[in-house]
Structure formats: structure tokens, C-alpha cells
Design a protein around this nucleic acid. Structure first.
Length: 423
RNA sequence: GGAGAGGUGCCGGAGUGGUAACGGAGCAGAUUGCUAAUCUGUCGACGCGCAAGUGUCGCAUGGGUUCGAGUCCCAUUCUCUCCGCCA
């Protein structure tokens, strides 16, 4: 959620920047300013009315104490009108505040100046690429065939137990999952991220805090009996650790990592490009989250990108980094880098990590602040990224490491797996 | 799930209808010959004001009663203790 105070100062600047997302926000921003002005007007009137009422009440109290009941009763009559006025104003103020909030909820974050123009994923800009695309043997298979051939993942079994998109990992497939999780967590904690184990269900307030609610209501599984939501990413519970916090500047930066399963309804996604591990309703992910001083958040973003690079380099997977264009940027993000691994057998790039700076967009919703050097409360910046999402990394490993003698395990994973080949 | 107790500011903690004591922490200023002490101020949210200031709100949350609510009433929620159930 954008800050009204910032919109007041930088409306034109914001309006221009938002055109990069392909939206004309100018009139929307004008509506925000008008709603805010109206809200402040009602607030001022209400404050005045209450001030008068308070002062009368004090007088009445004093009069009663000194036994002047008749004078007190006279004043009481005066307060009747004030009470009615206050009630009416209160209502108007509430309506106006709701209206303002609703408007603000519809406006996405302002893109950073580095964000390229563009409508769709075709306009994303490749900023880095590394790793050799392997020459695969004749008859190389896509991962869903490999998973079947070596009995690593049973998709049908998951359908039996739950439904499509809930795979069952078996034997070396399961072990490889566990190895990846442990390896990612080790890399992250070695880099200074503190490991957290968090709940996999969150309440409504947490969903609103990170922007999953009300914007992406239909994307989450909702446990209606207790009004809880299954997390779509560890970002939600981990970032909400700091909801409503007032931190000391010296506590920044804060770096967290967490492994969780992720649950996504993915309503409306069908077709060949979602086969196998490419898109699931339940998958595993190791996430990194940072809370940063605004002055450092972009350096932190670069640091996170470098960190993910190291992991992919160690796994020896061919990958590229895209800077997302305005049209492809998610609602809350100001700047996002996507990592994609090349799947040789499918002959396409698979997104395996998304690293974003949300600036104050989430912090404003969550009231995540710190006391700055002037002693003022200031919104912090939040960032997060995947390090990494499992399914497509697994797909990339299976497909790129296949040989005539079976699937080789990347060297760094061998100690975690306890085997070096799947055959 | 049943019974009871409770939720007060950054922390501790008083407060049975008259407008949040007191102590501590942090920060700021002043002062003092010493690993710090003392004094004063400040301390959350939303406004108004160039500013000094100033108004309103804030005692778990939401309503209600009252001229006036931390205090009384209703609902919700969370924590603790005991019982039950249980990986």
C-alpha cells in the first residue's frame, strides 16, 4: 500500500512511473488525494466537536462536586446536540477512511526507475546468463518421464490421495527433495540468514500484511472453519513476524530464511506448459526475507541476487536473470529479478526464483517501522526471494543431468543425498 | 471441549464513574572529575500550525449505558491454571 503522505508530495512522479505497468493511475491518485482531504476535513471537525464536549464534561464534573446541580443540568442539555454531531461525524469519517483505504488497495507499487517498459514477459530484460547448456543423449526425456522411469515421483498417486498438482515423492526422489532443502538452508544460514520454522497456516491479518489479501483472495486455500489460510509462500508468515513492530535502527538489517511447503490454488492454469513439476498446488520452497534500512535496500537486493547466483553456480545449472518489465511486475514489488533455469529436455526456461524489493509497500500495511537517527518512526523496506523453489530446480536437475547410465547428482548435493547417481 | 483467573504505554505495576499514579529502560538537554551519577524533558496513532505549540484518539478488540468509562453492561479474542482428550 502506497503512503498517502508520499502521494501528496510526488503525485506526478508516481503517475508517470506507474504508466510503466501499463496503467493510467493519474485519476486514481487524484481520487486518493480528494478522499484524503475529505477525511482530514471530517477529522478536524470531529476533533473540534469532541474537544468542546470534553471541556463541558469537565465543567459538569466540577459543578456536581461543588453541589451546583442545577447549573450542571443546564450544561448537560448542551451536550446532547454535540453528541449527535459527533456521532454523525464519526460515521462520515469512518466511511471516508474506508473509501481511502479501498482506493489505496487498488494501486500497485510504484516501479523503480530500473524497471523496463513493457507489457508482458516478452519485454523482460535479460541482465545476466551463466552456465553451459548440456548436450543431451539421443532420446532425452522430460522430467515427468524420468520421474516415472526411475520411480521418483508419482503424480497419479497424489491425484488419488488429494487431487491434481499434489505429487508424491518416492525413494531417491524424496531423498533428493530433502537434500535440496537442507542444502539451501545451509547455504542461506552460512550467508547470515537466521533459520525460522513458521506456521503453515496464517490468519487474516497476516494475509493482509503481505498483500495476499484482499488482492489475491482466490489464490490461497481457505480453511473456513477457523478462518485461516494455507500459506502460498513462507514470505507471508516470515514477513509478518515483524508486523506492527517498532525496531531500533541498530537492529537492521534483519535476514531470515525459512523452508515451508507452499499451497497455491492456481485457478485457471491448464495445458501442456503446466505438466509434471512445472506448476503444482503444493510445492516446497526455501525463502529468504530481509528487513532493511531504506538507504540500503537496493544494495541488499543486489546481495540477494548474488547469493542466488552462487547456489545455481554450485549446482551447475544453466540459468539467466531477467529484470521484470512493468507489465510483468507483481502488485507489491518495486523491482524484481527472476531467475530461470534452462530445461534442455523441454527446451524452455523455467522460473525458479524471484527476488524483489517491496520498499515500504508491505511495511506500510504492516506498520513495520524503525526509529531513525532523528528519533522519528520511519517505515522499513522489506525484500524477499526464493533460495530456492524446489520443483523446477528438481526438474532442471533431472533433465540436464540425465545420461545413458542414469541421472547424475550435482556434486554439492551428493553429501546430502548419500548417492551420486539415480539409475 | 469443561471450570476458573487475567489482558493497563518499551518493560514492571497501581488504579471500583470525574478524565492513566509510581518505578525502571531508551532517547534528548543540562550539570558534575571519572567505568557513571543527578536533574529536567520526551516517549503510540491521526490531524492543525512556518514554528513555539496545539486538538483528538489510545487501558486486548468491537459495540452499549452515561454529561463523563481503564472502571458498569454485552459480544468477540488471546494468555495462564486445573480437568478432559491427545502426537
Amino acid at each position: 500500500m502506497l503512503e498517502v503522505s508520499q502521494i501528496r508530495q510526488k503525485k506526478n512522479e508516481y503517475s508517470v512511473a506507474l504508466t510503466k505497468r501499463g496503467i493510467d493511475a493519474n485519476s486514481l491518485l487524484d481520487q486518493v488525494l480528494a478522499a484524503d482531504e475529505a477525511r482530514r476535513g471530517f477529522q478536524a471537525q470531529l476533533d473540534e466537536t469532541l474537544a468542546e464536549s470534553n471541556s463541558l464534561s469537565k465543567q459538569i464534573g466540577k459543578l456536581f462536586k461543588s453541589g451546583k446541580a442545577s447549573e450542571a443540568n443546564e450544561l448537560k442539555e448542551k451536550t446532547t446536540q454535540l453528541k449527535e454531531d459527533a456521532k454523525a461525524l464519526q460515521e462520515k469519517l469512518g466511511e471516508q477512511a474506508d473509501k481511502l483505504q479501498e482506493l489505496l488497495f487498488t494501486i500497485p507499487n510504484v516501479p523503480n526507475e530500473l524497471v523496463p517498459e513493457g507489457q508482458s514477459e516478452d519485454d523482460n530484460v535479460e541482465v545476466f546468463a551463466e552456465g553451459d547448456i548440456p548436450q543431451l543423449p539421443e532420446g532425452a526425456l522430460p522430467h515427468w518421464e524420468l520421474a516415472k522411469k526411475y520411480n521418483l515421483i508419482d503424480f497419479e498417486l497424489g491425484t488419488k490421495i488429494t487431487g491434481a498438482g499434489f505429487p508424491v515423492y518416492i525413494g531417491k526422489g524424496a531423498r533428493l527433495q530433502r537434500a535440496l532443502i537442507a542444502y539451501f538452508l545451509d547455504k542461506n544460514t552460512d550467508a547470515g540468514y537466521t533459520e525460522y520454522q513458521v506456521p503453515h497456516l496464517v490468519n487474516e491479518a497476516s494475509g493482509i500484511g503481505t498483500g495476499s489479501l484482499p488482492d489475491k483472495e482466490g489464490q490461497m486455500y481457505h480453511v473456513t472453519g477457523d478462518n485461516l489460510y494455507l500459506i502460498p509462500t513462507a514470505e507471508v508468515p516470515v514477513t509478518n513476524i515483524f508486523r506492527n513492530d517498532l525496531l531500533q535502527e541498530s537492529q537492521l538489517p534483519i535476514s531470515c530464511t525459512s523452508y515451508t511447503p507452499c499451497f497455491r490454488r492456481e485457478a485457471g492454469s491448464y495445458g501442456a506448459h503446466v505438466r509434471g513439476l512445472n506448476r503444482l498446488h503444493q510445492f516446497d520452497k526455501v525463502e529468504i526475507v530481509r528487513v532493511e534500512h531504506p538507504d540500503n535496500s537496493y544494495a541488499a537486493l543486489d546481495g540477494m541476487v548474488e547469493h542466488v547466483k552462487i547456489i545455481l553456480r554450485e549446482l551447475k545449472l544453466p540459468y539467466r536473470i531477467l529484470r521484470l518489465c512493468g507489465g510483468d511486475l507483481t502488485f507489491a514489488s518495486a523491482l524484481t529479478y527472476d531467475f530461470e533455469v534452462f530445461s534442455t529436455a523441454q527446451d524452455r526456461w523455467l522460473e525458479i526464483s524471484s527476488v524483489s524489493n517491496f520498499e515500504t509497500f508491505q511495511a506500510n500495511r504492516m506498520k513495520l517501522r524503525f526509529k531513525n537517527s532523528d528519533g522519528k518512526n520511519q517505515l522499513a523496506h522489506t525484500l524477499n526471494g526464493s533460495a530456492l523453489a524446489l520443483p523446477r530446480v528438481l526438474a532442471g536437475i533431472l533433465e540436464n543431468y540425465q545420461t545413458a547410465d542414469g541421472i547424475k547428482i550435482p556434486e554439492v548435493l551428493v553429501p546430502y543425498c548419500g548417492f551420486d547417481t539415480i539409475s
